[in-house]
């Protein structure tokens, strides 16, 4: 069990504030957040490349906080992979292996990652996907308790990305604990057992992907989760049973919007705007609302109309 307790890191320009979460062995955790949220800084802190100002990192109740990077049973795989250009593939994989069966281990990993034919090649002769596999093989050669991945799927071609997702799934199925940071929330939802959302150096949520989608909680997470419409609550008449005073925003998707006035539902009136693509927007006093295609409405660009949304399809969000 990995426990991260109140980890804080201070630099001249950024602060990571009281990050806490725990991960069971074999779990796949994805920490998502926009650029500058502190994801890589957190990974580097877990890996031992940054000294926290406060807090603890415990693995199976052993406190690793003061351990240097080379003493921690974690391996960090950077986004740029950092494959050593002065070594060939086999030398990269075997870089940190001190076992007397080093060559056998290299061959085994090469076979596992389908890079046996590339073992004598220099790194700059490999394709993007091959480099990813070599980097993973090298990272796993040391049998880390936790594999730390910094944006592993970013800027990869679709086929390479899909292949890597399968590899990561397989590794996790084999029991490898993984912490993966990304700015792509879909990666978080699709891959993770648990998902964390990071914002401005804070871990604002940490739960299962299902819980996250069901209840994003605040404006930031909802916008990060691609909710199509997030509107300020001000000026809307919401029944008291939904406790509107506790929230600042509502979120809903266009598929839940019904044309016309329907009693017992939230009603918003505005002017329809139709884009050449067929996409429709409703310009309301609350802002632009993305709605479904024009056929549902039977009215045209520039006409006034009212839409209705069932309160059960609305998420209430804090600011």
């Amino acid at each position: 069990m990995l426990k991260v307790e109140n980890i804080s890191v201070h630099t001249d320009s950024f602060r990571l504030k009281n990050i806490s979460f725990s991960i069971a062995p074999g779990e796949y955790v994805v920490l998502a957040g926009p650029s500058g949220a502190g994801k890589t800084m957190l990974l580097e802190t877990l890996a031992g490349h940054r000294k926290p100002k406060g807090g603890n990192i415990l693995l199976n109740d052993k406190n690793l906080t003061q351990y240097s990077a080379d003493k921690r049973p974690f391996t960090l795989l950077f986004q740029e992979l950092a494959l050593f250009p002065h070594l060939n593939v086999a030398e990269n994989i075997g870089f940190a292996i001190r076992d007397k069966n080093k060559q056998a281990i290299i061959k085994d990993l090469a076979s596992q990652f389908s890079i046996t034919n590339h073992l004598t090649k220099k790194i700059y002769h490999l394709s993007g996907g091959e480099k990813q596999r070599v980097a993973l093989a090298r990272a796993l050669a040391t049998k880390p308790d936790v594999l730390l991945l910094d944006e592993p799927l970013t800027s990869l071609d679709k086929p390479v990305k899909n292949e890597l997702i399968r590899i990561l799934f397989r590794l996790n199925q084999q029991g490898q604990t993984i912490i993966h940071v990304t700015h792509d929330v879909h990666e978080a939802i699709n891959l993770a057992d648990k998902t964390g959302i990071m914002q401005n150096g804070e871990l604002t949520q940490f739960c299962s992907p299902r819980e996250l989608i069901k209840n994003p909680g605040n404006y930031f997470t909802a916008s990060f989760l691609d909710y199509e419409n997030i509107l300020p609550l001000n000026g809307l008449e919401i029944p008291e049973k939904y406790n509107p005073s506790a929230y600042a925003y509502i979120a809903f998707n266009s598929k839940n919007i019904k044309p016309g006035k329907q009693s017992g539902k939230l009603q918003i009136t505005g002017t329809l705007i139709q884009r050449p693509s067929g996409q429709m927007w409703l310009e309301s006093a609350l802002g632009l609302i993305k709605i479904q295609e024009a056929d549902h409405y039977g009215i045209h660009d520039g006409q006034q109309t009212t839409i209705s949304i069932d309160y059960h399809d609305i998420l209430f969000l804090t600011s």
């Binding site: 031992g48 080379d70 974690f74 740029e80 950092a82």
Partner: peptide
């Protein structure tokens, strides 16, 4: 790139 040295240490080299 610093990531080379960090990777080496993360792989267990002093």
């Amino acid at each position: 790139p610093v990531s080379y040295e960090k990777t080496s240490m993360s792989l267990g080299l002093s």
